[in-house]
Amino acid sequence: MTTSDDTPVIATEEEITSPAPPPRPLFLDRARLEKVLPWIIILAFFLLWEFGSRVVLPLFTPRPEIVLPAPSAILPAMIEDWRAIVQNSLYTLETTLIGFAIAIVVGVAGGVAIGSSRLAYAGFYPILIGFNAVPKIAVVPVLVLWFGIGTIPAILTAFLISFFPILVNVATGIATVEPELKDVCRALGARNSDIVWKIGLPRSMPYFFASLKVAITVAFVGSILAEATAGNHGIGHLTSYAAAQFRVPLVFGGLIVTAAMGILLYYIAAWFETRMTGWATRGMDNPVAGY
């Protein structure tokens, strides 16, 4: 410690107890900004889109409204066909959620089975990766062959595409239980099922909920894919049908609605995640951890 007056090394008590106030925000503090920023960006996105298709695109193509209609052209089309859009959206939502529910059941059950046994893990993993690697668009025709055009192929595609992330995550959570913890339990005479039930499963919950966010969005991709290629209902069907009739604004309207549903379901899953697994973030209420 130096004794010279002009270079104090130790902060005075006052400095320690009263931290410098954060710089005044211009018009929004950080927390508010975090809330509104997504909306600003979405708005900016649509404005840019509008600009692109009204101003830039006409320089390159004589019929820009067929290549990329502007949002201002899409909105009337959506309003005009709102009934079809709502009906088909709800239909797709239902299909997706059924497939997703099956995926949760199969994913968790499979994840538990594979994660709790090294042998099963080693044995089944390669074939699962194989299944996952097959593009689902190639599977849809097969499903149609088996179940005909309609809802079932869409449900199954949503299921097939979304169970894998769930299974892998649950299996990982269970398989990576700390060996010491396993030893503590086994030295107490715990059965394998005790360890899975009391430690493996709760421990894999953060992984599980994280995977739900991924799974729900890909489930959407699956059901829409199946509807588009082999359905007679749903938003996928609507868009491919509209595309066939060159009603391009309606096609984009369907895509926008799909994206909106995807965002909505993602946040529902995310909400569940924070509700159920708050412990996993160790109560991250550190005001400095602003990332």
């Binding site: 700390e178 503590v184 030295a187 107490l188 005790d194």
Partner: peptide, 28 residues
């Protein structure tokens, strides 16, 4: 079975309260 163990890292279950952690062996 029935052996109590403790290690250098205490390996508690983060989703359980301290009380429930301590009571884990009773569930087994």
């Amino acid at each position: 079975g029935i052996v109590g163990m403790a290690f250098q890292n205490s390996v508690q279950l983060p989703w359980r309260t301290v009380l429930d952690n301590v009571m884990l062996p009773l569930e087994i």
